[in-house]
Design a protein around this nucleic acid. Structure first.
Lengths: 196, 196
DNA sequence: GTGAGTATACCGACCGGTCTGTTTACCTGC
DNA sequence: GCAGGTAAACAGACCGGTCGGTATACTCAC
């Protein structure tokens, strides 16, 4: 449940680089941020970055993994406190999202943004984003199934769509209570699907 | 209802530039595509582009407006055929979305993508995306109100979230029947909200 | 003759990435 | 206990290429 910390074998300089890159790539965009800036902000030479990460592509992959890990950890805490009832757990995902968007997500979903920026189908960062979204849909599908929904796959997808849609609504449209609205809609959908 | 065609006063070369830019910016991303490539593909010199559009920023704005106009026209046809019943009209928006995603949207929502790419808050392209999303939420809020929903603003937001979420689900997660799933969920939500 | 276009050269800035060489610190085996 | 090796980091110059944008000069059609 706790962090898997794949950041364990990182040298101190590499850890600083990854932290700085995570912040810069998210807030300014991947293509907008050059390696020189990352190096400077981390108090490191480009040489060090390339020695540790190999290429910008791979640094981007690490960035996406790191952000995803942070989100899953955040969500995990909410799920733990929610108990076992599927319905409460679904509600908890939207509470987690609300807090996350308030505190860590001023620029929308890092995975969706990266998917937009990395148009090259070969870029390994795309696979990270895809995997993250598949995981999220799987999470909701699992909760839908445990709740005894008639069509768990469809309900799971619908819940995930509300989740993603709330992020866009908050980020681009400026809907402040997007997560709460999504949570209420999710709860209503569960009722309709005959979920506990 | 029909297209406002702000493209009317464009010279033939400018029209070609806008067409090519629209295609390239959407499929490859705004920051990835250089003006030189746009010029070459349009069979035009950079001079001509800068004479007609002034800057890349403004060409991007025109691109976003052009794509939005295409989408609204597409949607308009579906709404016209759907008749006056709000519930049928809501369903029609998801049918329109399904067709749109099949035919014109292999890379997700151009507005969301642009919002991800254009991190500079001063970039005028961001305002175009914001306006487009406000319009979409307004459309759903209006339909919710006409349907006699108890809380039209909340239902409108929820419907818009399903819409946006379906785009992400289709694009990143690869959910093939995302629009149909979203449509069913939207219909269920309308029932819950006591809409006609 | 004015507006729309072509052709081409150019600008400074920045991009991702490589290179040579130096310093520091820790581990290990005779 | 000291030599040798290695990993991590430093400093900083350098590479070819692309970026958005500008300048000059010429053609063509209404």
């Amino acid at each position: 449940m706790a962090a898997m910390t794949p950041t364990a074998p990182l040298t101190p300089a590499a850890r600083r680089v990854l932290e700085v890159a995570t912040e810069l790539f998210y807030t300014r965009g991947i293509n907008t941020v050059g390696m020189e800036l990352v190096a400077e902000r981390a108090g490191v030479t480009k040489k060090t970055i390339y020695d540790r990460f190999g290429s910008k592509q791979q640094l981007v992959v690490q960035y996406l993994r790191a952000r995803d890990a942070r989100w899953r950890e955040h969500l995990g805490g909410y799920l733990e406190r929610a108990g076992d009832a599927p319905r409460a757990r679904v509600a908890a995902t939207f509470d987690a999202l609300e807090r996350w968007m308030d505190e860590e997500n001023p620029r929308g979903c890092a995975m969706v943004n990266a998917y937009a920026e990395l148009s090259d189908p070969e870029h390994p960062g795309r696979a990270v984003a895809e995997e993250q979204k598949r995981w999220l849909h799987g999470l909701y599908a699992d909760l839908a199934e445990r709740a005894g929904a008639a069509d768990p796959a469809a309900l799971g997808d619908a819940l995930a769509m509300l989740h993603e849609g709330a992020v866009v609504a908050r980020n681009v449209t400026g809907v402040r209570d997007a997560a709460r609205t999504a949570r209420a809609a999710a709860d209503a959908l569960m009722t309709v699907h005959g979920a506990d």
